[in-house]
Design a protein around this nucleic acid. Structure first.
Length: 199
DNA sequence: TGCAAACCATAAC
DNA sequence: GTTATGGTTTGCA
């Protein structure tokens, strides 16, 4: 039985699906309904779940982690994510995406180059990301450094990236199991962002 | 700039 | 099996 929780932190609703100290999905939204809706939408397991009003200790800890990520802080991600049932390619993309540090972004194309496959396939994985914002899909942008899309809305993507500014001087290459991935300072993606594109 | 074609793993049928 | 669908990219006018 999977346990589902929702909690409001500083005006944002976070949602969590977990069992046995293992995270099956996370999400967030403007309202409690949206947060849980997003969560269940992406949850691909057809397993019974139960919604709890009061968070368990484990849920509390995880919510605190989500909030820290949301605010752009550097956090230690030693969470136990339930990815075993996901398709092989999806796992690879998730793993690579989690290697993007705070303060940097990657493009769909550079992720694709690192894990194989094409940019659109990477976009597909992001669109179904069950672990936002733990798996930092908001750090993946288009090759021209416009934001691309975001499940939670582009405004949120912009906000998250703004919180993660670290003023790194240049792009670097990070090593993955499979290959290498080029990542760029997040400022590049924020420079030309215009709010009128968000509506 | 703007448009069309190539791109590639999933999910749905 | 086959088709449709993207949070894309690239080339070309």
């Amino acid at each position: 039985m999977i346990q589902v929780y929702a909690q409001n932190i500083n005006g944002t609703w976070f949602s969590l699906a977990c069992a046995e100290q293992q995270v099956f999905g996370t999400s967030f939204g403007e309202t409690e309904q949206k947060a849980i809706g997003n969560l269940l939408n992406n949850l691909l397991f057809n397993i019974p779940f139960q919604v709890f009003l009061a968070p368990s200790a484990y849920a509390k800890d995880t919510f605190a982690l989500l909030e820290n990520i949301f605010e752009g802080k550097d956090v230690n991600l030693n969470l136990n994510l339930a990815v075993n049932n996901l398709p092989e390619y999806t796992k690879r993309v998730i793993k690579a995406t989690m290697q993007i540090p705070v303060g940097y972004v990657a493009s769909y194309g550079s992720v694709a180059k690192a894990v194989g496959g094409g940019p659109r396939a990477v976009g597909n994985v992001m669109a179904g990301n069950c672990f936002a914002p733990i798996v930092p899909c908001h750090r993946v942008v288009k090759s021209d450094f416009t934001l691309g899309g975001y499940g939670g809305g582009l405004k949120v993507k912009y906000q998250l990236l703004t919180n993660e500014k670290r003023a790194y001087p240049s792009s670097i290459e990070i090593r993955l199991d499979d290959g290498a991935m080029q990542i760029y300072p997040v400022e590049l993606a924020l420079k030309d962002a215009r709010f009128d594109l968000f509506t």
